[in-house]
C-alpha cells in the first residue's frame, strides 16, 4: 500500500513538472525586462507619407508624434489602447489607423477599430473574410497586409464600418512565423507569396524599400545579413559575430540604400546600432547604455534616421 502511494505521488509530481514546465519561458529573467507602468513600452503603429508624423501606443493611449520636433500628444485614451492583451495596428491611409485588440483571455475574440487621426474618433469595425485569427501586419507597397494564424496573407480595405479582407497569397506549407512580411513556412521563407532563396538561419528582421530587400538572420552566434536587389533571390553580404538575439527587431533601409538595425543585448551588455551599406560595409555605434530596444526606425523628412525605442524615447541615428 505504502509503495503504491509513493509511486502515485512520484508520478503525480513528475506529471505536474512536465505539464507545468513544458511551455514556460524564463519567467524570472522576463521579470528583469519589465518596466514601470508609467514608462511602458511604445507599440509602433506607423508613419504618414512624408514621415513627418508617426503614431504609436503607450499605456497613456494613442500618441501622434511630430517626428522631428518631438511633440507627442496623446490623441486618444480610449480604453482599446489601454486595456488589451495583445494588439497591433497599421495606417490604412494617412487619415485612418486600424487597430486590432486580441483578447486572448476573452474567448479569443479579435476586435477591429478604425481611428480617425484628425478627430481621434474610434469606430468599431465588422470584419469580412478573416480566417481564424490575425497574428501580424506589415506594409507592402504602402498597403497594409495582414498575416493569418495559418499563414494566409490578406489585404485590407475599409468600406463604411466594415473591414474587408481579401486573400493575397497562401502557402501549402505550415506557417511558422512572420517577420515584417517575410513569412516563414515549413518549406522556407516567402515574400508576397513568392518563395525566397539563399536565406539560412532564423530571420529576426526584414526590411524593404519596395525593390531592395534585406533580411537579418541569426545563425549560431552570428548575424547573417542577406540582400536581394530585386526579386526574391537573396545573397549573404555580411556576417557579424556576437549575436545571441532571440527576439525580432526592426530595421530600415534609408534613401541611400543603407540598412539600419539595433542589436539589443538585454541586461547583459549595451546595445549597438548597425549600419550596413549596400556593398556590405558595416559601421556601428555602441550606445553605451543598457536596456535600449528599438521599436521602429523612421526615415525623417529631412533625411535623418530616427529610432523609436521601446521605453527610452527617440534617438537620431548618426553613424
Amino acid at each position: 500500500m505504502k509503495k503504491t502511494i509513493l509511486i502515485t505521488c512520484i508520478a503525480l509530481i513528475l506529471l505536474s513538472f512536465v505539464s507545468c514546465n513544458l511551455d514556460n519561458n524564463g519567467i524570472l529573467l522576463n521579470g528583469l525586462e519589465k518596466v514601470p507602468s508609467d514608462n511602458k513600452n511604445r507599440s509602433f503603429i506607423g508613419y504618414d507619407d512624408t514621415s513627418s508624423t508617426m503614431y504609436y501606443v503607450t499605456v497613456d493611449g494613442l500618441v501622434k508624434r511630430a517626428v522631428a520636433s518631438g511633440d507627442e500628444p496623446v490623441i486618444s485614451n480610449d480604453s482599446i489602447f489601454t486595456h488589451y492583451y495583445q494588439a497591433l495596428g497599421w495606417l490604412q491611409d494617412d487619415n485612418t489607423i486600424v487597430y486590432m485588440t486580441d483578447s486572448a483571455r476573452n474567448n479569443g475574440v479579435q476586435a477591429f477599430y478604425s481611428i480617425d487621426t484628425s478627430s481621434a474618433k474610434v469606430t468599431s469595425l465588422k470584419v469580412e473574410g478573416k480566417g481564424t485569427g490575425i497574428v501580424d501586419c506589415y506594409m507592402a507597397r504602402n498597403e497594409a497586409r495582414l498575416v493569418g494564424d495559418d499563414g494566409t496573407i490578406y489585404s485590407a480595405e475599409i468600406s463604411g464600418e466594415t473591414l474587408r479582407l481579401t486573400v493575397k497569397s497562401k502557402s501549402e506549407g505550415t506557417f511558422r512565423s512572420s517577420t515584417n512580411g517575410l513569412i516563414k513556412y515549413s518549406d522556407g521563407y516567402y515574400y508576397e507569396g513568392y518563395k525566397t532563396s539563399g536565406i539560412s538561419g532564423d530571420v529576426k528582421s526584414f526590411a524593404t524599400d519596395g525593390n531592395t530587400k534585406y533580411a537579418v538572420s541569426v545563425s549560431g552566434s552570428s548575424f547573417l545579413i542577406y540582400k536581394a536587389d530585386s526579386g526574391t533571390a537573396f545573397s549573404e553580404i555580411k556576417s557579424i559575430s556576437g549575436s545571441n538575439d532571440k527576439e525580432e527587431f526592426p530595421s530600415l533601409i534609408d534613401s541611400a540604400g543603407n540598412l539600419y538595425f539595433l542589436y539589443y543585448r538585454g541586461t547583459r551588455s549595451s546595445s549597438i546600432v548597425y549600419k550596413v551599406s549596400p556593398s556590405g560595409d558595416v559601421s556601428d555605434h555602441d550606445l553605451q547604455k543598457n536596456n535600449i530596444r528599438a521599436e521602429a526606425f523612421v526615415q525623417g523628412s529631412d533625411n535623418e534616421i530616427y529610432m523609436l525605442s521601446k521605453d527610452n524615447n527617440m534617438f537620431v541615428v548618426t553613424i
Binding site: 505536474s16 507545468c20 514556460n24 522576463n30
Partner: peptide, 14 residues
C-alpha cells in the same frame, strides 16, 4: 519542496 509560480500576464513554472 515545490512551488507553483505564475505571472499574471502569462507564464508559469514549477
Amino acid at each position: 519542496g515545490i512551488s507553483y509560480m505564475s505571472v499574471s500576464d502569462g507564464g508559469a513554472y514549477l
